[in-house]
Design a protein around this nucleic acid. Structure first.
Length: 514
RNA sequence: GUCAGAGUAGCUCAGCUGGUUAGAGCACAGGAUUCAUAACCCUGAGGUCGAGAGUUCAAGUCUCUCCUCUGACACCA
């Protein structure tokens, strides 16, 4: 089965920010999970590169738009490499394959009678790429968002007849599965209930865009061409750019993961476009929340932007992934707090999980010839820690497909806490001082190490680096295709040598603000 | 302005269809322990559940009013 998922195609107006990293990390966790579950995953990310805004940004730097796009796009793809993002595709809307796809798609919409010409005039903000509601006789109005002067536009555009899709879109979004989280669905419902209006899909005075076939002088409006990037990405499998192939290679997408700000484009405009072109709509659109920092909106104005580069260098991927996925309910807004970041990484990862493994492996090596203990036969099928372990596995496998990363992370952590508690109750270090308890000690250490092994496996999608370090400590490797099998209790081989324990997670010591 | 959502321990939040002394994590205090990354385990302190009124035998949980915050409101990747 193909499982396809997408991040937004990030707009290359500026270098990547933490928000993009957040979305991409979440998708990466989901993609890794689905692969482990045996799905044939196509994980798509990429960049959106057209539009007047980019044209102007390039102009101010005295470079050509494509040079600018090349530069920023490279920043994105490099960043994903360094964060070890497991994307299968990286699509650029300036790629030569994209144009024919957009044109073919447009022609389908046009042939279906959903394209018309229309006149549009008003005050326009280039940074927003949208018309504002300021009255026509306003004098030199500014954009409230960008605080820049609006420009008067009076042009002939092509329109997509969204109004014809009112009922079909209402039906679509009425499906509780389609928009997630549920809290955002009502917003879209309200919006749709207000009546859908046609929207313009071309511009006449923007050269940095894809030409509309049969309409000289028109280029596609960025949104129209950007969304289609998902299809281009999917078709970029070595085969032809042919809309008819989509059904065979993973369309419709299982989920589009996006920020809440662009939910409407994905939940309303995009499905309508697809319907017009006779293609199926995505199965689900998930709009996650935004990140603030120490309670404040991140922004250039405040100078409090968290740079992903710095985060990566100073903290590493595992720490950041864990913090973002574990502490923020995916879907809700979240606040990045440096102290809490350190507290959670150190407590959860270094102390609770890392130290559990470290102390247990040390004991095992110390008392059982640098190896896993020999065990009584029934431990591999029955032990007090077996059931909690199986419940944890179940919870993780339920949570991640629902993008409830926080629940998954907490479940794993809970297992480590239970195992730590169990060790303290049994106190093998005391038992070892009395003769005749070696077997009991061996059994318990084995069981706790089994918990560690499962923890390592379950952590694979969330924090892959840490996961492989945990598994290596147990002389195991990350799972490729045998995950379900590996998740069964009792897979560690008694008596096998254990490597010398090394801390699997360094504590985070951040002296200065990030 | 209209609509939606939220206001619960210092912080971040959980509390389903109303029902014993309001929960968790972090932070804080004390204890226990020594296998371990000054880690682990246990205990404790800490809340008039935004304000006011009402319904009810009983309200954080329902109704109304008010205050505060957030989001959406037609094309802000």
């Amino acid at each position: 089965m193909t499982y396809s998922l997408t991040t937004p195609l990030y707009y290359v107006n500026a270098k990547p920010h933490l928000g993009s990293v957040y979305t991409t990390l979440a998708c990466d966790a989901l993609a890794r999970f689905q692969r482990l579950e045996g799905q044939d995953v196509v994980f798509i990310t990429g960049v959106d590169e057209h539009g007047q805004k980019i044209q102007r940004t390039a102009e101010t730097q005295n470079i050509s738009p494509i040079d600018h796009c090349d530069r920023i796009s490279a920043l994105y793809s490099d960043l994903w490499t360094r964060w070890h993002i497991s994307n299968d595709r990286f699509v650029r809307t300036t790629s030569p394959r994209h144009l024919p796809l957009v044109q073919a798609f447009f022609q389908r919409c046009e042939a279906a009678g959903h394209i018309r010409t229309g006149h549009q005039e008003g005050w326009y903000c280039v940074d927003c790429e949208e018309f504002k509601d300021d009255p026509a006789d306003a004098k030199a109005p500014d954009c409230p968002i960008h605080r820049k002067p609006l420009e008067w536009r009076d042009e002939e555009n092509l329109f997509f007849c969204l109004s014809q899709f009112q009922e079909r879109i209402e039906t679509l979004i009425a499906d509780p599965q389609f928009i997630a989280p549920a809290s955002r669905r009502r917003e879209i419902e309200n919006f749709v209930a207000g009546g859908l209006r046609d929207f313009s899909i071309s511009r006449v005075n923007v050269s940095w865009g894809l030409p509309v076939p049969g309409h000289p002088g028109h280029t596609f409006y960025v949104w129209f061409d950007a969304l289609l990037g998902y299809l281009t990405a999917l078709l970029d499998d070595g085969g032809a750019v042919d809309l008819d192939r989509l059904a065979d290679i993973g369309w419709p997408a299982d989920v589009h993961v996006i920020g809440k700000d662009i939910l409407r484009f994905h939940a309303v405009y995009w499905p309508a476009m697809l319907m017009s072109a006779g293609l199926p709509v995505p199965k689900r659109v998930f709009g996650h929340g935004f990140l603030t920092r120490e309670g404040q909106k991140m922004g250039k104005a405040l100078g409090n932007v968290l740079d992903p580069e710095i985060l990566l260098e100073r903290c590493g991927t595992d720490a950041v992934r864990w913090y973002l996925l574990r502490d923020i309910q995916f879907g809700e807004d979240g606040d990045f707090q440096q102290q809490r970041f350190m507290d959670l990484v150190n407590n959860d990862l270094a102390n609770t999980i890392g130290n559990l493994l470290n102390r247990t492996a040390s004991m095992s090596r110390k008392w059982f010839e640098a190896s896993l203990p020999p065990v009584s036969p029934d431990v591999r099928s029955e032990h007090p820690l077996k059931q909690p372990t199986e419940q944890t596995i179940e919870r993780v496998r339920q949570s991640i497909p629902a993008l409830a990363f926080q629940d998954a992370a907490e479940a794993v952590l809970q297992l480590a806490i239970e195992a730590n508690g169990y060790l303290n109750e049994q106190a093998p270090w005391s038992l070892m001082k009395q003769p005749g308890h070696e077997e009991k000690v061996g059994d318990d250490l084995y069981a706790v190490l089994e918990c560690c092994r499962v923890i390592g496996l379950l952590l694979q999608p969330l924090v892959p680096g840490l996961s492989s370090r945990i598994l290596a400590q147990l002389d195991q490797r990350p799972s490729d295709d045998g995950w379900t099998q590996a998740l069964r209790w009792g897979q560690l081989e008694p008596g096998v040598g254990l490597p010398k324990p090394e801390p699997v997670m360094q504590r985070l010591e951040l002296e200065s603000p990030l």
